[in-house]
Measured scan of single mutants.
Amino acid sequence: WIARINAAVRAYGLNYSTFINGLKKAGIELDRKILADMAVRDPQAFEQVVNKVKEALQV
């Protein structure tokens, strides 16, 4: 799951650890299995999560 998430978030200019930190700051409580599945099956929803994380990180 970690490898999938890392590959997906790198397309948005983040790395895995920064993304996970941003999830916590944004108050998003999705587990890694769901995030990895979302990255593959629903990229639009995953992009929305990434955008919320970037807002929380102020990137």
Rank of each mutant, 00 (worst) to 15 (best):
A26F: 03
Y12T: 02
I34D: 06
E55C: 10
L30I: 13
V50I: 12
S17D: 12
V49S: 02
V49Y: 07
N21L: 13
Q58F: 07
Y16N: 01
D37R: 09
G22P: 01
K25N: 06
A8N: 02
V53L: 04
G13P: 00
E29L: 13
D31A: 15
Y16H: 03
D37H: 13
I5S: 00
V50M: 04
E47V: 11
Q48S: 15
R41L: 14
W1Q: 15
G13V: 01
I20F: 09
E47Q: 10
K33H: 06
S17H: 10
T18Y: 05
R41M: 14
L30W: 06
K52P: 01
I2K: 09
Y16P: 04
K54G: 03
D31V: 15
K52Y: 07
L57R: 05
N51G: 08
P43D: 05
A56S: 07
S17L: 13
P43V: 11
A7L: 06
E29I: 13
L23P: 00
K25W: 08
A36D: 02
I28Y: 10
K25Q: 11
R4K: 14
W1T: 15
Q44K: 14
N15G: 06
R32T: 14
V40H: 12
D42C: 08
A26R: 04
M38Q: 08
K54Q: 14
E55G: 12
S17N: 10
I28K: 02
L30E: 13
N21P: 05
V50W: 01
V49W: 03
A11Y: 06
N6W: 03
W1F: 14
Q48Y: 06
G27W: 06
F46E: 00
A39E: 02
Q48P: 02
G22S: 03
G13S: 04
R32S: 14
K52D: 06
R10H: 11
L35W: 04
I20R: 06
V49L: 09
D37C: 12
E47I: 06
I34Q: 05
E29D: 14
A36E: 01
A3I: 06
N21S: 14
I28V: 09
A45R: 10
A56H: 07
P43W: 06
F46Q: 00
W1C: 15
I2M: 03
F46L: 03
A26S: 06
A8S: 04
N21I: 12
A45Y: 12
K25P: 05
G13Y: 03
K25S: 10
V40K: 13
G27P: 02
P43H: 08
A56L: 08
I2S: 00
V53F: 01
I34P: 05
I20N: 06
V40P: 02
Q44F: 12
E55M: 08
R4M: 15
Q58D: 11
R10C: 11
W1N: 15
D42P: 02
F19K: 00
A56W: 08
E55Y: 09
A7I: 09
A45K: 12
I5L: 14
N51K: 12
K54E: 04
Y12F: 07
F19Q: 00
I20M: 15
N6Y: 01
M38E: 02
A56E: 08
Q58K: 11
L30F: 11
Q58E: 12
K52M: 14
N51W: 13
K33E: 11
N15D: 07
Q48I: 13
N15E: 04
M38C: 12
Y16D: 02
E29C: 14
V50T: 04
L14A: 01
K33Q: 09
A26N: 05
G27H: 13
E55P: 03
F46N: 00
A56N: 07
